[in-house]
Computed example of a mutant assay.
Amino acid sequence: MTDNSTRLYGIIGKNIKSKRKGKKLGQEELAKSISLSRSSLSNIEIGKHQPSISTIYEIAIALECAITDLLPSIKVYEEATLKIDEKYKDIFNSLPENISRKNRNIIKEILRKDD
Rank of each mutant, 00 (worst) to 15 (best):
N4D: 13
Y88W: 10
D85P: 01
E64S: 14
I44Y: 07
N15G: 03
T6P: 00
K108H: 11
N43H: 13
K75H: 10
R7C: 05
I91N: 12
G10E: 01
S35G: 10
K108C: 02
K32Y: 08
I67V: 10
I53Y: 08
E79A: 14
K32C: 04
S73D: 06
T55W: 03
G10M: 06
S39H: 06
C65Y: 03
D114I: 09
S42T: 13
L63W: 02
E78P: 00
K14D: 05
I67L: 05
I67M: 10
S54P: 02
D90C: 02
A60Y: 01
R7Y: 04
C65F: 07
I91F: 14
L95W: 08
A80E: 15
I84A: 02
E29K: 08
N103S: 11
S73V: 01
R20I: 05
I91V: 13
N4F: 00
K14P: 09
S37P: 01
P96E: 05
S94G: 09
I91M: 10
H49G: 08
R101W: 05
T68E: 11
H49N: 12
K87I: 03
E45C: 07
R101M: 02
Q27T: 13
I34R: 04
I12P: 01
Y57K: 14
L71T: 04
L63T: 06
S42F: 08
S35C: 04
E79D: 14
D115W: 07
P96S: 05
S35Q: 12
E78C: 00
A80K: 02
I16M: 04
I74S: 13
Q50A: 14
I34V: 13
S5F: 11
I11M: 04
E86G: 05
D114P: 00
I16H: 00
L71C: 10
T55C: 06
I74H: 12
N103V: 15
E64A: 11
R104I: 12
K48D: 15
I84P: 00
D115P: 01
T55A: 08
D69I: 11
R112G: 05
K113C: 03
I56W: 07
L30Y: 04
N103T: 15
T6W: 03
I74R: 10
S40T: 13
R38W: 02
I110D: 05
K21N: 11
T2Q: 12
D3M: 14
P72F: 02
Y88T: 12
K21H: 08
I99V: 13
R7F: 01
K48V: 14
S94M: 08
G22Q: 14
S39G: 10
I107N: 04
K108T: 03
E45V: 13
I106Q: 08
I11R: 03
N98T: 11
I107G: 04
A66V: 10
